[in-house]
Amino acid sequence: MAILECKALSKRFGGIQALDNVDLTVEPGRVVGLLGPNGSGKTTMIKLANGLLTPSSGEILVDGKKPGKDTKAIVSYLPDKEYLPEWMTAKQMMDFFEDFYSDFRREKAMEMLARLGVSADMRIKQMSKGTREKVQLILVMSREARLYLLDEPIGGVDPATRDYILETIIRNYNPEAAVIISTHLIADVEQVLDDVIFINNGRVTLQSSVDDIRGEQGRSVDQYFREVFKC
């Protein structure tokens, strides 16, 4: 069964149509790129899947259910915001995740923190922006979730951090789970993706596999994307 399904999904903010009649499905075991320019509706879609927004019409289903308590237990979400309370330490954050998510694997998080050289007693406040982002990613990827929703994980990070993030995603690949990565930096993620979804002005314009696009177009998804979305 599809892990994420949108049926005629629309979301309006006042007069602005952020998502317009979106239909799509994502199957488990796939790494999917949600690709579109800034303001195309990527974040809106991810927020709807997390229950942080309510659809104006249509529906969005996670593992067959509307977003709520049950779906939140199987969705691991990395927002494009820093959400870690500054006063907490890395260890307290792990306690917190362990308390609320039964699929959180502490050993995994500890190992990744150690590899990054972050001490568990370090406060979020003391960490650099880049370290905070990595700690957030570690917490999110240390869950054995069914659906990972990563909103702009590589926006504004240096190349070394980008490699670290992509490597972490591959390392944690699980055939039972789907990963959705939203980004406008396609060249950087293209080779870790199975499928791509093109989104523009709130509409899904294409859902295809990376190698199908490369095979049919004879060029990379990035090049294809640039042509489709050229201003």
């Binding site: 075991g29 796939r30 790494v31 490699d163 992509l166 490597e167 591959i170 390392r171 690949y173 080779q191 870790v192 993706l193 199975d194 990376v210 190698d211």
Partner: peptide
């Protein structure tokens, strides 16, 4: 998985 990590690609692609 290890081969995919080494190449920096998706495990499904390496599998294929």
């Amino acid at each position: 998985r290890d081969m995919a990590m080494e190449a920096g690609v998706n495990p499904n692609t390496m599998q294929r």
